[in-house]
Design a protein around this nucleic acid. Structure first.
Lengths: 99, 99
DNA sequence: TTCCTTATTGGCCAATATGCCATGTATAAG
DNA sequence: CTTATACATGGCATATTGGCCAATAAGGAA
C-alpha cells in the first residue's frame, strides 16, 4: 500500500527533524523520557507549540508517549534517529574545514 | 562570528536536504557530476525550479559548480552528506519493523 | 460536584517555501 | 552583429509551516 518512493519517505523524515525545537526535543529524549512541561522549559516556546511539535514527531513514529496522571511523558521510539546528530555534526565539521 | 548554536545549524542543513527533488539531486551527484539539464530530466521539474534547488544547495555548501561553455556541471562539495541516506534508510527500516 | 494541573486541539495570522512563467545573462556559432 | 543554447534570476500566486491565544479534554484532589 505504501507506494511512496524512498526519496519521498526520506524527505518526510528529514522535514520532521528539520526544526531547531524538534532537534532539541529529540536530543533531550535521547537521554531519557521527559514530560511535555519539561520539554517546554527546554525549548522555551508556548506549551501548545511544544505539544504540536510532539504530535508531529509522534505522527512520524519518532516518539511515543505514556500518561501518568495528568502528566504525559515522551520518549524516543526510534533511538537510531540520534545517528542524525553524529551525521550532521560530521558534515558541519567537514564543511567548516573547507571554508 | 558564527554564534549559531548547534541545533540551529543542524536544522538548517536538514531543511536544505528535506525535499524530494533535492534528495534526488544529491543522490545523483553522489555518483558523479551532472549538468543542470541532466538533473532536470531526473527530477522532472521546470529548469528554473531545478536551478533554484541547486542554488539553495550551493548556498548551504552542499554542492559546487563548474562551467564548461554554456553548460554548468554540479558536483557534491561535502560527499559525506550521503551518510544521511544510510542513516535515513536505517531509521525507516527500523521503524517499519516496529509497525 | 468543583477546582486545579497538565496537555491537546482549533482558530487565526505571519512567515516561509515551492513552482511556474517571463526575463536576464553568459557562452558559442554563424 | 544576430541567433541559439544552457542556466540563473525576478516576480508572483499558492501552499505549507510556525507560533500564539483561547477553548477543550483528562486526571487528581477536596
Amino acid at each position: 500500500m505504501n507506494k511512496l518512493n524512498s526519496f519521498t519517505k526520506q524527505a518526510r523524515m528529514l522535514k520532521t527533524l528539520a526544526h531547531e525545537s524538534r532537534l532539541m526535543i529529540v536530543d533531550r529524549l535521547s537521554h531519557g523520557e521527559c514530560s511535555v512541561g519539561g520539554l517546554r522549559k527546554l525549548v522555551g516556546s508556548d506549551l501548545s507549540t511544544v505539544s504540536k511539535h510532539l504530535a508531529l514527531l509522534r505522527a512520524h513514529g519518532i516518539v511515543e508517549d505514556r500518561r501518568e496522571g495528568t502528566t504525559v511523558y515522551y520518549r524516543l521510539r526510534t533511538p537510531c534517529v540520534c545517528d542524525f546528530f553524529t551525521c550532521a555534526t560530521k558534515v558541519l565539521k567537514d564543511r567548516s574545514r573547507r571554508e
